[in-house]
Amino acid sequence: MHDFDYERPVSLVEALSLMARHNGHARPLAGGTDLIDQMRLGRHQPGALIDVKRIAELNVLAADADGLHVGAAVPCCRIVEQPLVNQQYTALVDSCRIIGGIQIQSRASVGGNLCNSGPAADSTPSLIALQGVCVIAGPAGTRRVPVERFCTGPGQNVLQPGELLVEICFPPRPPHSGSHYRRLIPRNEMDIAVVGVGAAVELDESGRTIRAARIGLGAVAPTPLWAEEAGALLAGQPADDVQFARAAEAARKIVSPITDMRGTREYRIHVTGVLVQRVLRAAVARARGEAFTYLPGH
């Protein structure tokens, strides 16, 4: 590995000034589960690592009237133990439980997963489904970017030199809503998504009609996708398999996967539809408060 500087700021102001001083040659370090491996392989050679784990704003995990705030450095293991997230943002919990093993989950952050901007990132489809918004701080102040517009290509995103992802915030979940994430992997654990689907649904009081739905897709395009039309056409429709199949078809139309060692293009298109239906079924069951058990990988 090459030589580099290491900084550990304790405030956001200090972090931003360090980022500015290194003038685009620094990379923020949260859990490091992607970054350190990439540096060992020589894929990234930053001149400095800015460790953001000591910054208060990046470690927030709390709800207020605006909804849920997840600091960019909060590790998966904290998220899966947070009671409100477990009740209302279950897709996020589903994602955080299957990112690596226990050791990885103790370090890896959702913010880091998003900033790494891998097409197959397991948390991003859930963030999209739950309407997450990125809060980004930089030399010019703070700006907000919806998660579905954050990634711009494999390993690429909207962050400009000197900018830092501070948190992802989510609007409060309406009543009668539920969400779920699952992925297809050839193994049952410790694997990378061949296709990943996150969905959040809101039902009416009867629990039979869908008021709104959002679907996020992973590993089927150069960036994670928001299947906007697939979600939109469910609005006002009965929550049943016929409608789920329509959504699946709509989702299949927007994907542009590649053939690689993880699966063929045809396979990924097919499985996109299969998973959209399964995930919607599960999200609806959760919205209805029905018992729903899910064994990852199966």
Binding site: R187, N188, D260, M261
Partner: peptide
């Protein structure tokens, strides 16, 4: 039987020379 293979691209490069993508079974499998 189920997942292991040397996956080569057109140039003869193995694209899955890691234990992430060369899928040995784990205890979950």
């Amino acid at each position: 039987a189920l997942n292991e293979e040397y996956w080569y691209d057109d140039r003869g490069t193995m694209r899955n020379a890691t234990y992430l993508d060369y899928r040995l079974p784990t205890c979950y499998d």
